[in-house]
Write a protein that binds this DNA or RNA. Sequence first.
RNA 1: GUGCCCGUAGCUCAAUGGAUAGAGCAUCAGCCUUCUAAGCUGAGGGUUACUGGUUCGAGUCCAGUCGGGCAUACCA
Length: 551
Amino acid sequence: MQDFFLPVIKNALISLGITSDKPVLIERPSDKKFGDYSTNIAFLIARESRRNPKEFAEELIAHLSFPQDTIKSITVAGPGFINFFLTSTFIMQSVEQILLEGNGYGRSCRGKGKKAIVEYVSANPTGPLTIGRGRGGVLGDCIANLLETQSYTVTREYYFNDAGRQMQILGESVRFRYRELCGVTEAFPDTHYQGSYIREIAETIFQEHGPALLDVSDLQLFKNRAESIIFKSVKNTLDRIGIRHDSFFNEHTLYHREGSERSANDQVIDLLRAKEFIGEYEGATWFLTSRIGQEKDKVLIKSSGEPSYRLPDIAYHITKFKRGYDLMVNVFGADHIDEYPDVLEALKILGYDVSRIQVAINQFVTTTVDGQSVKMSTRKGNADLLDDLIDDVGPDATRLFFIMRSKDSHLNFDIDLAKKQSKDNPVFYLHYAHARICSLLRLAASETGFYPDGSGHHLLQLLDSEPELRLGLLLLEYPQMISASIRLLEPQKMVDYLHSVAELYHKFYQECPILKAERDISRARLFLSLATKQVLCNGFRILGITAPESM
RNA sequence: GUGCCCGUAGCUCAAUGGAUAGAGCAUCAGCCUUCUAAGCUGAGGGUUACUGGUUCGAGUCCAGUCGGGCAUACCA
């Protein structure tokens, strides 16, 4: 609809001799008495030219020239809003377009020829995925889905490190449990991983090797075995909720030196040093962030000689630039909030265009069970496992609950609510709308021989009641909801939107008999139902939830 | 202390700087001889934490105050 209004408004401005690059707002007013669409253009121009908005609005609408039979009336209201009332014919003609575009409705070519990378989950393989990780996982996956609708070529990447200290501790933890199985009793350090999965891994190793590894001091076997078992479980968990990565990037490759070659990490140091942003003191190598106004410098290479996480992070992002991505989205939790500004600063210093990087930070998840909130820590092993959650509430509810709140808000995951198989659970509301339509279509086929074959779409133009027009208008908003979701990296917009679609459909269903109406009206309403189903399906695909045909 | 996020109905949350701040749950009152009542209609419920500022217009932007979360590592 933006594309419908904006050119006309622009032409009117030109004929008044006005050029303005202000972003014109075309929106659905909150109250239907203000029309189907409204614009704030008069306020924008009035400010620039120091005129009365209302007077200017009156003058402008005289110059608006819309195609025949699209606009019923235009009014100026309030302090200078311009309100448009559309003809029902035009609304329903536009709905026809949805049926024509089908699965492609909502897609655009905006990202055609552009490469995007979305990095998400990126949990190190130290334990099974927790509920907290799930939020970022679903968020990232939905963002990737959104970008794909805009024709971006999307890489879903998982960044991990299997060489750090945490992995060392993992290996030791497993060995402890293994030695227990061999009959050696030692105090288990509380700095180590307490989770029961450690015991299970140790048991697997014990079954494979018996007590033969009791005196092996090298951790490698324990570590590797643990890593492969845990990674398998992580991938399996993700797969259960439809998250599949294209690429797993091992941080350790950034440490790799071929002969006398410098590693990717080394090169970052070299480049930053050339820019005089590297300092050495207290036995460590520092990124001199105090030079750019930060309180403290940041360690890049520890006095032990190992890089801190920041160095490979920078090197990693350079690989993204070298791999030619036009858009790089990083999804991570609020606990990593301090991590990315340094990376961006370093990249900026090295001359990279950091505007191509967008960061989506999701706030924490607290789970409540019986009103009790649960604190989580992988180390202590008391975390709520994502797998358990999926067992409890199913993949659809898991995904929907994670993204039905704004990523900036703390998510209160009420497990009891999510478990409920009732209307309290929003996923059912969405499913029900879709299933209801499918049921109608089945009945229509069996009772009246209605099969949607592409002919007869024009019957839609017979519809002109309020529930029908409201639903139609909402369906037309779908492409704009996708744009807004991408702009804000906020799939939650889509959840809200689809909920409204379901709501208006239920109202339409309530007020307008579909199968029992006169033949042409009945068909028209079936087409409107089909268009609704199409929007729901396209939206569900982005959210990654199923579209059940019956309940 | 400093940085980031949050503070909106009893609860969980919406609301591109736009018109009378909206949904769901909960409470109360209605709608099934009729296409799925897992639905719909209606009622009550608000000083948008507080104080200033910016402007035609502020829940939204700015400053400050108060509360909550996260981070402030030579962990990642």
